[in-house]
Nucleic acid binder design. Structure first.
Lengths: 111, 111
DNA sequence: CAAGGATATGTCAGAAGCGACATACGCGCA
DNA sequence: TGCGCGTATGTCGCTTCTGACATATCCTTG
């Protein structure tokens, strides 16, 4: 089920290459994952910049420390909804969110 | 529920104002909804511009006509994930998505 | 080394979202 | 007027996400 777990299990012999190559993701799936990663990074930045711990942040969000950890790790079980709601609660504006998505995400399919 | 929401409860008589005033939404909730509405509008634009029906679009997305209708109506049961995945599948880039969020959304928290 | 705070990882019951289906609404055309 | 096509709305069973908790892994600091 979980693609990441499968990936780990199958990785007896290593190959170089991006995760997108290794897993078989469509370009759209890749782009989607990259968006989440970019937002997750931004979320961590917002938090650390405020000197907050994950636990404190979790309380602000009405969530738990573990979920914040997963959120910042762009875990597969974390939805875009949660990610974006968290960012807004941490003080980001929609403009900020849009900017992060637009600028920190590789647009073209690339090689 | 949320302590910060309480403030607006007492509007006895009508006032003109946005849905966000009328419902009891925090600024973040309002911003989130506005993001979804902007993306939903954009989704409809992409579809109609391609001359597709909701049913045809649904097949491309591996979904159903009803869900596409709800998606374009920014229905509450439609997640950001679905919205964004749909946009990417319909040909939008992450940059497009970011731009829509950043520019078609009222930014300031303000009153 | 031990203790303590912060972060990561695994699991679960319950909530939320999903595709699918049925059906209602709107509108043009015969 | 009735039919056909596109869209909207409501519901349902199943899947996925969520908060919570337990626990593991780092780092510091004494």
């Amino acid at each position: 089920m979980d693609p990441r777990k499968r990936a780990r299990l199958d990785s007896a012999g290593w190959k170089v290459g991006s995760a997108a190559d290794f897993l078989d993701l469509t370009p759209e799936e890749t782009a989607f994952v990259e968006m989440k990663v970019a937002l997750a990074r931004y979320a961590r930045g917002l938090r650390t910049q405020s000197g907050l711990t994950q636990t404190e942040t979790a309380m602000r969000l009405g969530s738990s420390q573990s979920r914040v950890a997963k959120l910042e790790a762009a875990d597969a079980t974390v939805s875009l909804d949660l990610l974006v709601k968290a960012l807004l609660t941490l003080g980001a504006t929609p403009a900020d969110v849009g900017r992060v998505i637009a600028s920190h995400t590789a647009t073209s399919a690339g090689s």
